[in-house]
Nucleic acid binder design. Structure first.
Length: 597
RNA sequence: GGGGCGUUAGCUCAGUCGGUCAGAGCAGAGGACUCAUAAUCCUUGGGUCGUGGGUUCGAGCCCCACACGCCCUACCA
C-alpha cells in the first residue's frame, strides 16, 4: 500500500477536446487510478485545463471574447466531457486560479533564488500592433533557400529546411497579415545544463527499473545529449506574472506556459488539500520519497515531463550543480514513471479540426455509451504505437466483443437466475468443473491487476475478456437450461450460483475499464450499483477570492477491494434489460458522412 | 538535415532474455445448442514475419543498407 499520484496531462483550453486526446491520457489514467485504489493504494489523481498561451489569445480574438471568457467556456466543456467519460479525478481544476498563480510564482522564486535561471537576450518577432510575441509558426514568407512562397517561420514545407523567421523574405503575420517586427528582448532561461547531471542520474535510475515503456526512456535519455537552456518567459500579455521587481508590473512579460502548466500537478494537489481542510495533506504525495507518481500524456509531451518538469523540481529543491536550498514547498519528488501513449489517428489520418477529420468527446458521448468508447481505447488504443480509430472497428469492437462477449454473459446469467429462482441461489456441492471456472475467474484479479499496474492495458483487458470466454463456455457446457425437475434443482442452483460469482468477479475486474456498466451489472445481479464511484462536477469558489469555477471531484473511497467478494445468496434478481446497447452497422456510414474531406 | 518509432494471416494487433515463434481476436467456412441483444459453444489459420545483405549451429526477435508510414527536432502548446 502506498501513496500514488496520478498526474494527468492538462488539456489545452483553446477548444473542445477530441477523442484522440482522451484516448492518450484520459482513459488510461482513469483505468490505472481506479485499479490502484481498488488495490489498496492511496491515490491522488489531479489535472486541469491549461489556459494560458498564444493559441488561446488568438482563439479569443477570433471569437470576439476575452481570453478569460474563452477559457471559461472551454474549461467547462472539457470538464463536463471528462466527467461524462467517468474520469475519476480527485481534483480537475485550471491554471487561471489564484492558487495556481501563487504556486507557480513560488516555484519561480525558489528556482531563481537557487540560481537556476539565466537571463539572456534573444532576437524574436513581435506583433507591432499588440506587442505580443509572434511564435515562429505564426509567421510566413518566402523561403530564403528554395524561394518558395508561403514557408512557415520555423520550417519550409517545400524544401524541408529549418528556418529562422528573421531570414524569411517578406515575412507576414498569419494572424493579421501585418509585417512582424524583430526585436531584442530579455528572458529568463532555465539552466538545464546545470541540471543535466542530476537529470541523468534520475533517468538512469528510472531506466534500471525496466518499467518505463522502451521508447519513452530511450527518447528521454536521448534528448539529454543536446540539453541547453530553455526560455521560461515570453513577451505576451496573457499568463502568470514574473514575480520579480521590474518584471511583475510589466504587462507583456509572462511566464512561459511550460513553466506554468506542468506546475499544475503540484498546485492542483495543493488546491485539493486546501479543499479537504488539511492544507498540508498534499505533502504525503510530494515530499515523502516513498510516494509514487505516474504521469500520463501523449508522446508529444514527453520532453516536458521527462526533462523540463523534473528539471524544475530539481532546481526548486536545490539539487543541481549549483546547489541551493530547500524552500517552503520542501524537497519535491521526481516522477516515478512517465507513462506516455502514442497517437490515435482517425480513419487513417491525423485528427484535424479544420479539415473536420475529428470527433469531439461531447459528440461521441451524445450518441454512444462512454464504456463502449472506453472499451475501444483500452483494447485498441495507442498504447505502444499509433493506432487508428475507425467507425467500423468501433462498431465491431462494441458489437462483437463487448456486447456479444461480456454483455451476453451478464444477460444470460441474470435471465437464467431470474427465470429459475428470482434471487441468487445457494450453492450445493461443487463439482470439479465448478471449481475450475471459479478459479479462472478469481485468477483474473491477479493477472489483470498485474498488467494494469505495468501499464499494459490492452493485454489486461484482453486477459479479462479471455476469462469472460471461459465463463461463457462453462455455461454452454453445463447447459443449465436443461436442468429441469426437482431432482436437478440443487445442481441448477449451484451452477447458477457459480456463474453469478464469476460474473461478479469479472465485473470487478472490468470495472476500471467499464465503470458505468460495472454499476449496471452489479444492479442486474441484485447489488446496489455502487461498484465504481463516479466523478462530480461542482461549481466551486476560488479559494483566494477570485471568480468561482467548475471542478471535477469525487469520493472514490467506496470502491470495493481488488479481490473476490462472495455474492449474497437471496438477493433478488429480476429479468434484466441489456446493459450494453448493440450498434446498428448503419452508424458507420452516418459517422463517415459527418467527417469532412 | 538530426534523433526515435513502426511495417507479422483479409482486418486490428500479441510476440518479454535469439532456439515448439510463426500466434490471438474478428471476418470467412462447417457443425452444436437455444438461457441470452440471431447472442453462445465446438472445428477450421500454411502468412517469403516491409526489401536486400550480414552475424550465428540457429533470427520477426541482433547488426547494416533501402522503401513506405509516423513522432520529436519550433519562442505551438
Amino acid at each position: 500500500m502506498s501513496r500514488v499520484l496520478s498526474a494527468v496531462a492538462w488539456p489545452y483550453a483553446n477548444g473542445p477536446r477530441h477523442i484522440g486526446h482522451v484516448a492518450g491520457f484520459g482513459v488510461p489514467s482513469d483505468v490505472f487510478s481506479r485499479y490502484m485504489r481498488m488495490a489498496g493504494h492511496d491515490v491522488l489523481m489531479v489535472s486541469g485545463s491549461d489556459e494560458h498561451g498564444t493559441p488561446i489569445l488568438i482563439a479569443a480574438d477570433e471569437a470576439g471574447l476575452t481570453p478569460q471568457q474563452l477559457a471559461d467556456q472551454n474549461h467547462r466543456v472539457i470538464a463536463e466531457d471528462l466527467a461524462a467519460l467517468g474520469c475519476s479525478y480527485d481534483l480537475y481544476t485550471r491554471t487561471t486560479t489564484r492558487n495556481h498563480h501563487a504556486v507557480v510564482q513560488e516555484m519561480f522564486t525558489g528556482v531563481y533564488e537557487n540560481g537556476y535561471f539565466v537571463e539572456q537576450t534573444t532576437y524574436g518577432a513581435i506583433s507591432p500592433s499588440t506587442g505580443r510575441t509572434l511564435p515562429d509558426r505564426y509567421i510566413e514568407g518566402t523561403c530564403p533557400i528554395c524561394k518558395t512562397p508561403g514557408a512557415r517561420g520555423d520550417q519550409c514545407d517545400a524544401c524541408g529546411n529549418q528556418l529562422d523567421p528573421a531570414d524569411l523574405i517578406d515575412p507576414v503575420s498569419k494572424i493579421n497579415g501585418e509585417t512582424p517586427e524583430f526585436i531584442e528582448t530579455q528572458h529568463f532561461f532555465l539552466d538545464l545544463p546545470a541540471l543535466a547531471e542530476a537529470l541523468t542520474a534520475w533517468l538512469d535510475e528510472r531506466a534500471e527499473t525496466g518499467l518505463w515503456r522502451p521508447n519513452v526512456i530511450r527518447f528521454s535519455q536521448n534528448i539529454l545529449k543536446e540539453i541547453r537552456p530553455r526560455a521560461m518567459t515570453r513577451d505576451i500579455d496573457w499568463g502568470i506574472a514574473v514575480p520579480l521587481d521590474g518584471w511583475r508590473e510589466n504587462p507583456t512579460k509572462k511566464l512561459y506556459v511550460w513553466f506554468d502548466a506542468v506546475i499544475g500537478y503540484l498546485s492542483a494537489s495543493i488546491e485539493w488539500a486546501r479543499r479537504t481542510g488539511d492544507a498540508d495533506a498534499w505533502r504525503a504525495w510530494w515530499n515523502d520519497p516513498e510516494a509514487l507518481s505516474y504521469y500520463f500524456m501523449g508522446k508529444d509531451n514527453i520532453t516536458f515531463h521527462s526533462q523540463i518538469w523534473p528539471a524544475e523540481l530539481l532546481a526548486y529543491s536545490g539539487k543541481g550543480d549549483k546547489g541551493g536550498t530547500e524552500h517552503s514547498l520542501g524537497t519535491l519528488n521526481l516522477p516515478t514513471e512517465v507513462v506516455s501513449s502514442e497517437f490515435l489517428t482517425m480513419e487513417g489520418r491525423k485528427f484535424s479540426s479544420s479539415k473536420k477529420i475529428v470527433i469531439y468527446v461531447r459528440d461521441l458521448l451524445s450518441r454512444y455509451q462512454p464504456d463502449a468508447f472506453r472499451y475501444f481505447v483500452a483494447s485498441a488504443g495507442p498504447e505502444n504505437q499509433d493506432s487508428d480509430f475507425t467507425w467500423s472497428e468501433f462498431v465491431r469492437r462494441t458489437n462483437d466483443e463487448l456486447v456479444a462477449g461480456w454483455g451476453n454473459l451478464v444477460n444470460r446469467t441474470a435471465n437464467l437466475i431470474a427465470k429459475n429462482f428470482g434471487e441468487i441461489p445457494a450453492a450445493g456441492q461443487l463439482q470439479p468443473e465448478d471449481e475450475a471456472v471459479l478459479a479462472a475467474a478469481e485468477a483474473a484479479f491477479g493477472t489483470v491487476g498485474d498488467l494494469i499496474s505495468r501499464h499494459r492495458q490492452k493485454a489486461a483487458i484482453g486477459e479479462a475478456m479471455r476469462a469472460v470466454g471461459e465463463v461463457n463456455k462453462y455455461v454452454s457446457d453445463l447447459e443449465p437450461w436443461k436442468m429441469k425437475g426437482e431432482d436437478q434443482r440443487e445442481r441448477l442452483g449451484t451452477v447458477l450460483h457459480v456463474v453469478a460469482q464469476c460474473v461478479a468477479d469479472l465485473n470487478l475486474v472490468l470495472s476500471p475499464f467499464l465503470p458505468f456498466s460495472a454499476n449496471d451489472v452489479d444492479k442486474a445481479l441484485g447489488g446496489t450499483g455502487e461498484i465504481a464511484p463516479m466523478p462530480q462536477i461542482v461549481d466551486a469558489d476560488d479559494l483566494d477570492g477570485g471568480d468561482g469555477y467548475p471542478i471535477i471531484t469525487g469520493d472514490y473511497t467506496t470502491a470495493p477491494s481488488w479481490q473476490r467478494h462472495p455474492i449474497t445468496v437471496g438477493l433478488p434478481v429480476a429479468k434484466p434489460t441489456p446493459v450494453f446497447r448493440k450498434l446498428d452497422t448503419a452508424v458507420v456510414e452516418e459517422e463517415l458522412e459527418r467527417l469532412g474531406g
